[in-house]
Design a protein around this nucleic acid. Sequence first.
DNA 1: TCGTTAGTTCGAGTAGAGTCGAACAAGCGA
DNA 2: TCGCTTGTTCGACTCTACTCGAACTAACGA
Lengths: 107, 107
Amino acid sequence: MREPSHPETAAIELTRVLYALSDPVRLDVVRQLDREGEASCTALDRGRPKSSMSHHFRVLRDAGVVRTRCEGTAHMNKLRREELDRRFPGLLDAVLARDQRHNQGQK
Amino acid sequence: MREPSHPETAAIELTRVLYALSDPVRLDVVRQLDREGEASCTALDRGRPKSSMSHHFRVLRDAGVVRTRCEGTAHMNKLRREELDRRFPGLLDAVLARDQRHNQGQK
DNA sequence: TCGTTAGTTCGAGTAGAGTCGAACAAGCGA
DNA sequence: TCGCTTGTTCGACTCTACTCGAACTAACGA
């Protein structure tokens, strides 16, 4: 299991990012990464099967939303914050900020 | 063909909006609406079949991204800008701003 | 080297999208 | 009322996603 491939910043596509973020499970993962910084796949699965999570991480990786780094047997994931901010200024802020308001104010 | 139903502002869901915007055809429609204000379905179809466009407008409507108003036989669509801005501040700006940069800088 | 742990890959099942032609419905003008 | 125009709905097709168990692979420690 060598380091998985990631798109370069310039190759990150808006529609793919939006698509990656449009799934509740993946949005949840992104939220957690935003709060907790870097985390392994298992730490973010909330009890969901490994194979399902592996699928979602792949989508997030391929879209350029997260970067995965191998550390022993664990795969550490983190948001590609700066790169995304540079490429789509304000997008992640809007998605995640809204999220917090949603969690606090509405529920 | 009475006025189609639209979700209330408070009922607009982030994941559905992101999903609606993640399709190139729909994103293109949203771009055009952003530039041109209000427009009929035909004016935005770029030669695509009516049934396909009808599908996309439905997705955009159901997600709360556009509002459709009947005017004679035509259906006029417009972005629900203010409502979206209120519910997800900065989201549409990020999506559309990036869009323009993309169109200008890259193409 | 043998487990153990952490993820990936595969395969199958199910559901949902996008595409498009054809038929339908509604409003308008002649 | 008869067309014409504009969209919607329906049905069929194809493709892709999500889900999850099972098998596999890689790294680490004892």
